[in-house]
Structures are given as C-alpha cells and as structure tokens.
C-alpha cells in the first residue's frame, strides 16, 4: 500500500541506519588494507580531516537549524562518516577490478576526493532525513537552510569537484532508494547548469588547459 510521506521518510531513515549499523565508525579491515597498500599511507590525514570537518559541520548545522542542534549535527555527521567509509571501500573494489591495481596512493591522498566523497555522503544522510531536499513549502522553514548546495559552502568545496563523485557514488551504493538517487541527480543538474559556471570554478582552468593544448592542432574543415 502507498505510504504517507512521514511513513516513507521513517522507512527511509530506518533503512539507512540499518544499512550503516554493520559499518563501523572506523575504516574496515578491507579499507585499512587499501590505505596500507598506498605508497603514502593516508590513514592519519583521513582521520584528522574527519575530526576537523566534523567540528565545522556540527557548528554550521547548529547555526542553520538552532542552537541546541549541534549535537544533532554531530549525529548526522557520524552517520555520514559510516556511509563515506562504506562507499569508499566499494569504489576502491570497483576500481581494483577495472584497473587491476591495489595501490591507490594518488587518489587516497587527494584531500579534494575525500571532502567530495564525505560531502556526498552527508548530502545523502540529510536528504534521507528530509533536510536538504527542496520543499514545496517555500523558503521559510529551517529545513531549507540545509538545502544543497549548503554542504559545498560548509566544506568550501567547489561544485565541480563534488560533481565528480556523484555517479561513482550512486554506482557504489547499492542500497540507495530512488528518491535519494533522484535528489543527487537534481544536485548534479544544478551544478552542470549553474553552480559549476560561477566565478572561481576550477572548470575555467580546465577549459583554459584544454584550449591551450588544442591550439597547435589544425582546425577541422567544415563537413560538406
């Protein structure tokens, strides 16, 4: 039978929490092995970054939602970390299969990759709790303060970099329900259509590099 919006949200939340119970709040044995296989072990940087971003996130969450919500923000963050580790492990397994490598040192020492992945995990958590999806009720409710791209501002993350993880995240998280996938697709479209084109986006540097690289090539003659 069709669910009421509240029942659907509660089911979604229960499913997310249930899926993440078995994930620890520390890297699993498999994930720790990927870290150790790196030329430069990223473990300490990962843990330090999580501590810093956890503090930043919960403070900003409290500012957005209300002074007593900092603890709630920390709970959301902790769920996000579990999801982040879980999806990271699955991504690395998929990459290992695709590329036949076990040393992901460059990727796992890239702080933008980690911030993007964590931001995506938190976006999924907040969307599950109904906090970051656009509401038809308008802009007055506190929930809309957490709406995407709020997380990009909190992590000072360029939208273009966040965009890079979305598809791989959806591929790697097999339990995501279609409403959350739809939400990430909405974020993706917003980035492609608008946010990635704002001043200061890394996209412009990439375009410059592509243009400079292609300048020596002959122009294609127009097709007849």
């Amino acid at each position: 039978p069709p669910q009421t919006p509240i029942r659907a949200a509660m089911t979604s939340i229960q499913q997310l929490r249930g899926d993440l119970i078995s994930s620890g709040d520390q890297p699993s044995t498999n994930l720790a092995t990927y870290f150790k296989n790196c030329t430069v072990d990223p473990t300490q940087d990962v843990l330090k970054r999580l501590e810093t971003l956890g503090h930043v996130y919960s403070q900003r969450f409290g500012q957005a939602v209300g002074p007593r919500s900092t603890v709630l923000g920390m709970q959301r963050f902790n769920l996000g970390v579990r999801l982040y580790y879980q999806v990271m492990e699955e991504m690395l397994k998929m990459e290992e299969q695709r590329l036949s490598v076990q040393n992901f040192s460059k990727l796992l020492n890239d702080s933008t990759f980690h911030s993007s992945l964590l931001a995506c995990a938190l976006e999924v958590v907040m969307a599950t709790y109904g906090e970051s999806r656009y509401k038809s009720g308008g802009v007055d409710s506190a929930e809309t303060d957490l709406c995407f791209p709020w997380i990009l501002d909190v992590f000072r993350l360029p939208a273009f970099d966040f965009y890079k993880v979305i598809e791989s995240f959806i591929k790697a998280d097999h339990t995501m329900n279609k409403d959350i996938v739809k939400h990430l697709e909405t974020c993706e479209n917003l980035i492609m259509e608008r946010i990635a084109w704002r001043t200061g986006s890394p996209l412009f540097e990439l375009l410059k590099q592509e243009h400079a690289g292609g300048a020596a090539e002959q122009l294609e003659t127009p097709a007849s």
Partner: peptide, 21 residues
C-alpha cells in the same frame, strides 16, 4: 530501481576524474 543515466564509459572512473590514471 531508479532511472539515473550512467554516463561514464568502461574506461572512465573515479581515478581518471581525479587525475589519478
């Protein structure tokens, strides 16, 4: 099930997107 369009080719993945190929 969802209808998300996966655009990455088989030879493309997170490693290439973060310039780690």
């Amino acid at each position: 099930s969802h209808d998300y369009h996966f655009g990455l080719e088989d030879h493309e993945g997170i490693s290439e997107l973060f310039d780690c190929d």
